[in-house]
Structures are given as structure tokens and as C-alpha cells.
Design a protein around this nucleic acid. Sequence first.
RNA 1: GGGGAUGUGGUGAAAUUGGUAGACACGCAGGCUUCAGGAGCCUGUGGCAGCAAUGCUGUGAGAGUUCGAGUCUCUCCAUCCCCACCA
Length: 813
Amino acid sequence: MEQYNPAKIEPKWQKYWEEKELYKAEDFSKKPKFYSLIEFPYPSAEGLHCGHPRSFTAMDIISRKRRMQGYNVLFPIGWDAFGLPAENYAIKTGTHPKATTEKNIANFTRQLKSLGFSFDWSREINTTDPNYYKWTQWIFLKLFEKNLAYKAKMDINWCTSCNCGLANEEVVDAKCERCGGEVIRKEREQWMLKITEYADRLILDLDKVDYLAKIKKQQIDWIGKSFGAQVVFKIKSSTMLEGEHMYDLPVYTTRPDTLFGCTYMCVAPEHELIEKFADQIDNYEEVKDYINQAKHKSEQERLNLEKTKTGVELHGLKAINPVNNEEIPIFTADYVLASYGTGAIMAVPAHDQRDYEFAKKYNIEVREVIAGGEIEKEAWEGEGTLINSDFLNGLNTQQATDKIIDWLEEKGFGFGATNYKLRDWVFSRQRYWGEPIPIIICPHCGYVPVEEKDLPVVLPEIEEFKTSETGDSPLALIVDWVNVPCPKCGADAKRETDTMPQWAGSSWYFLRYADPYNDKALADLKKLKYWTPIDWYNGGMEHTTLHLLYSRFWHKFLYDIKVAPTPEPYAKRTSQGMVLGEDNEKMSKSRGNVVNPDEVVKEHGADTLRVYEMFIGPFDQATPWSTQGVVGVRRFLEKVWQIGHNLDDKKRGNEDDLVFLTHKTIKQVTEQIETMDFNTCVSAMMILLKKYQEEGCNQEIFRLFLKILAPFAPHLAEELWQNLGHKKSIFLEPWPEYNPELAKESVREIPVQINGKVRSKIFITEDMAKEEIKKLALADDNVQKWLASPGGLAGKEIKKFIYVKGKIINIVI
RNA sequence: GGGGAUGUGGUGAAAUUGGUAGACACGCAGGCUUCAGGAGCCUGUGGCAGCAAUGCUGUGAGAGUUCGAGUCUCUCCAUCCCCACCA
């Protein structure tokens, strides 16, 4: 018998599967369809890390199983290939990102193929291919056409290291999510996408899909819908005459019931009120100073100073509380965010902890209007009965809220309102390596879309990749490319030089897989109707508020314009845990704890890597890598190889046992692949194999085993299968059905407890009656011993006899 | 501050969802094989006591419900992740 040599058999079968086109998805097949998806990788220079195969193997197992179960499976692969690392590398070395990307894709392809994933490579896509990004640009134009893309001057997050604008979602701890560079606020004209318009539907339609609960919750929290009221306060300056028109300052509050407790107002330092009333603010210089300070405070400082609130009163201005016409002071403070609500708040120190702290510091009245707290100590943010509130007195929070909203609406001082934490999506990037935004800026016509027939707007070839000093994209320097006639009026105009963020290409890629070569549409609607929605999408938790939300937004938009057939892209979403380094830390180059899958394949083979990644721990939990642990899986596969070469045709006396355990394992593996309990699937197969090792195994039974092993260790299973004389791939075999009769144990050993402690074990059969079992249990030697033992139990009566069918006996004495 | 998760041997972890705690695997110890190293095979392996059968004890801590709790309830403690001045 030959040695088990993965290096020899694995490439052989990979080639075989490719030649037989075993994993090719068929459009409009009569079989039921199954669309399984992994997050397409960014082809980095480092190549695959050991986190990739965890998700990929899981979905590969599910896809292979589905094929064997008779489904027409689409399990595609592609490249999310725009992005900063290739561009930064270009800045450093002058190598064109296109060249870097091609090279990296070649490496990734080699690696993925070496792991034996059953991707349909004929549908491979690449976001940097002009034939692909033509449609990314097309979608942008449609968004523009429907007023969902707009350009706005605003303070954005600016990465000082990338020289580039970032979305809120890309800023982590005041640092750039990608490069870790410092992020400051900077005012710029930016393209924005109105994701907020879809906020409600993005929440509501979560009911239509099967996502892990924590994923749904995280999305809902991120969108952050809240209910309350908008209340308008009139602003009055000391120089104003009675009856002169006053400025209206609207605020948003979730607690309109506390309106009588409002003792001051506060606006964000960026609020327009300050500039508007500059000449009426007596201490304008002081205010200006404060604003400047706030602006230069880095985000990091702001976080550290979280507890100490600062602000300045706007002397000379007063606000008028509409419910009681009281004049109250106005402050500006940086604890009020310009970008949430209206950028201004009504402060109720007695019932909001932040306002409470601020009021204490600046000696502002704390007026209790909700009973139930101890406002000498801290703000009472709970509910309660209204006091000191005129016509609201005696009501509870809910009643008071309803009543005050009615009152505000009636008097024209405000209305019930909802608000979201979700902001519109900053869509501009001042970089080269992204999809050019297909807009032409004309001095006469404004923003003019590139005509559809002129798509794609192809990235021009350039040699200098650095962002310009003004912070514009390197594209701004390519005069030939930038200067174009306006499509509308023909006047001299300029192209938009901002490019799209990396999230653009990944926001619709799953649709392209249905029809990757279409040059008339992003994908043929009939094909989309056949393939979508995606039946099962597995990916990282870190994409929940980024890619997952963005792509749902785009998909809903495409649904609205009748380009996509379903309101939701993904019917089911699951998430894998991270593979940590051996030191239990996140794998990273700097820590030097990165495990390269190439080395594992070289040493033990792809099947070992695959099975190990599934065996390593619960799929949804982070687990450290263990080089030692890999060996255990290798030994298991070695044993499979041994037994696979030592089969016979003998029937044995203990045949029943073997058949029973085999069917039990088929049942377990069949069910637990669906629940992603891969680790226990592997352990069940190990137990079964041990049984074969002890008892010997015949071909008929082993064939069943090979079929359930095949999705996990495809190369080994295929080798042993065809060794048995089969002429066709094991993956063309039907998935084994377990026989429920055979998966049932006929005789089983159950524990006998006395007063809750296991004292003996007896054998019973399925059909025994309780009385019969009781007799058997009481007759048992050990039980007798305990009943009559000198341990003090002697002569005690049996109070209770509990028998849980097929599980346990407990005798209470 | 808010949210989510987790706590079981030396390690990664199982536990049919209230029914034999520690399956499976790593590691370790002893043995066989080998010139040696490695690999392989066999045996043992939560702790304490005992040559042993066995007994006691044991799932972060404490209480409760139950014939029976790793699992349910309450009160603490610890760790990790995400979000974070969202009015």
C-alpha cells in the first residue's frame, strides 16, 4: 500500500474536477437552485491568511453537500480589487496598482485552487475590470438621477496619512480604519449617498431575512432610530424690539415630556446661529476662541475629556421656552454634535445626566419635572409622574409625551419626529485606484452625468500616484483626461476627479455572478430571477455596519428601479469567528504570529488544513491556531487512508453495531452541517473511524462514510472512492440518507441514580415498559448494595421511582 | 456610559437543550518498535484518598427552584469584543 501523500493526490483531483467542470453552475437548470456566497477577498500582497479558509471551507462544505443533495449550486468567486494598499505601494515604488493587483490575484488564485474549493471559476469577477466597473458607475448615475447622490460641502473625516476622505463607518477610535493614520475634521465638497432615505426600510425588512440575531441587532442599533419631537424655540437678542422677527431654533428631543424642565439651550460650535448673530453676541471673541479650541481638539482628546463638559454662554441672546415663555440662556458646547438632530438641544439638567453635569458646572437651575429620582445627586432619566409642569402635572411619561406633542402641533411650536443616528454615506475618495465618479462639472449646467453610452469612464494611465497637495485625487493632474466638453451644452468642462470608495464595487457584486459577461445590463433580469436572492451568505462580523448595510441599501435601490428582482439581497447571513494566532492574539504581521496556509498545505495537505479549520472550535467563536492540533487531524486522515485500503467484503457478527453507528453519524453530520456545528461533525467522524479501526470495515459501509467525509476532505474522499472502482466523481453521488430505524439503538445502557447520584448502569431495550425496567433496576447488584448498605440507607423506603424514557433512572429513598 | 458575548482539565473544547460532566483532539506520563531522532502503535490522564474495587469532590463565586442544574431564576465577580457626549 502506498503512503498517504496529499502532495500527490490533491493536485491530481483538482485538475480532474476542473476538467470535468464539476462545479459549474447552470443557468435555468430544472434542479432547485442554491446560491451560496462568501465575501470575495481583497487580493492583498500578503496572500491568504488562515482566516480566509475558515469561512471558505464552511461554505464549500455546504455547497458540496447541496450539490450531492441535488441542487444546482452557484458558489462563485471574485476579487474586490480596488483599494488603498495597492495604491500606497504604487506611491512608494511606482509600480502601477493594476500590475500589483494582477500579480496578487494570480497568487490568490493559486492558493485558493490548492485548497480545493469548489468555486465556479467560469464566473470569476474583478471590480477593477472596466467591464465590471462600467456597471458600478451606471448604478451611481441611476442614484444621481433619482437624487440619491448629491454633492455637499461638509465637514468630513479626513485621514491625514491617506490624504483622503473617509465615511463615518471607516473611522475607528479617531483613526483611519485602513491605515491607522490620524483622522481630523476637514471641510470639503463631497459626493454623498442618501442612505438615510432607506433607513426605515433597512430596519423593517430585517423581518424578511434570516440573519443571526446579533447581526440584526447591530444593524438596528447602527441605524439608531429614535422617537421624539422637534420643538421650536424663538431666539431673542437684547437689541431686538418687542415683536421684531425672531430667529427660530429647532431642537430634537426624545423627551418632550420634560419640556417644562428646560433651563438652558445649547448649540454645537458649528451651528449657524453663532455666525448669524455674531454682532449681537456680547462676548463674541470669547465664543470664537472656544470654537477654535474645540476645532483643534483632536478626537482623541475629546474622548478623554468625555466626563468634563465645557462651553460658553452666548451673552446677549436668549431663547424662549414655548410652553411657559421663560427666557433661558443659550450656550455653545462641544458635547452637542452638529451632525445629529438639528445640532442644537434643549437642556433639561434634572433629567439628562450630561445636562446635569453641565448645569452644575455653570450654576444653572436644575428643575425637577419628573418625580421619582434624587436630583440632588444625579439626573433622573427614568419615567415617572409629571410635576412642576402646569397642564402636564399628574400625567405619566407616556401620557405627557402624547399630550405635549399634540399641544406643540396645535400651537405650531413643533411636531412629533423621528431621528436616526445613521448619516448619509460619504462617497468621495481623493484617490486614484477606484472607480471614477462619472460626472462632468460644467460651469453652466452644474453636475452633468456622463452619458450611458460613454461608460465606462476608464481610469487613465498615470505615473505619479501621490495625492496632490490640495488634497485632490492624482487624477486632477491628468489634464487631457480632466478637460472635456459638457455633454449638455458643449462648453469647456471638467471631469469629477473623486473616485468611489472600495465599498462601491462590493455593494452589488453578488448580482454580477448571475451573469458576469453581460454588456447590456449589470445582469440579465431573468437570470437574476432564477438565482437571487442569495440563499446563504457567510462573512465577518466586522462588515455588519459597512458592507452588509451598504449592499442592502444598493440592492433595495436596484429593486426600486426594477433592476433587481427581490427587496433583500441575502436570505440568510451567518458569521465566522476569527482564527487567532497561537498566542491567542489577532494574527498580524507586526506580532509575527501569522500562519501561512501554503506552509500547512505543503506539510500536511489541503484536506488536513480544511478539516482542522473546521475542528478548531465552535464556528462562530474566535479560536487560537495550534500547530500541534493540526497533527491530530493529519493522523485522522492517515487512518482514513489506511482503512480505505484495507476494506473487505465480509459480513461480521457485530455488523449491526457498525451500521448503527454509521447511520447515527450520517444523521449527525447531515444536521450539524446545517447548524454550522462543524467541530462536532469532525469529532463524530473520528469516533466512527475508530470503530472501523477496531472492528474492520467493509466496502458498503465505508462508501457511506466517504460520502459524508467528502465535503470536508474532498481530495482524500475522491481518491479512496475511485480506488474502490467507481468511474465517476464522488461528488456526483447522492448525499446518503440515514435510515431512522438503523440510527436507533436497540439496546442501550442507562444510568441508575440513587438520590441523584449515579450508582449503577443497566441495559434496556427500546420497547421495555417502565415496570419491567423498575424490576430490572431494583434487582441490580449495585442498587441492592446501596439500598441495603450500612451507609445509613438501610431499610429506607423507596419514595419515588423516576424513569425518563431511554435516558435515566433515579430512585429516591 | 450603552450593547453583545464568554467563564467547564495543563490546552482547544463536548454535553442529545433539565438527565452518566469532561466526548473528540492536543499535550503529558509509562510501555512497545527503532542504531538514533522523528513517525507509528498500546495503556493511563479533572482533583483528593486508596495497590485496587471504590469513595468523596468538581463546570468563576454565592443563594434558589427541582427527584435531578454546566444548562433555569436571582445576586455578585472576572474577561473579551463592538459602539460610544446620538439629546
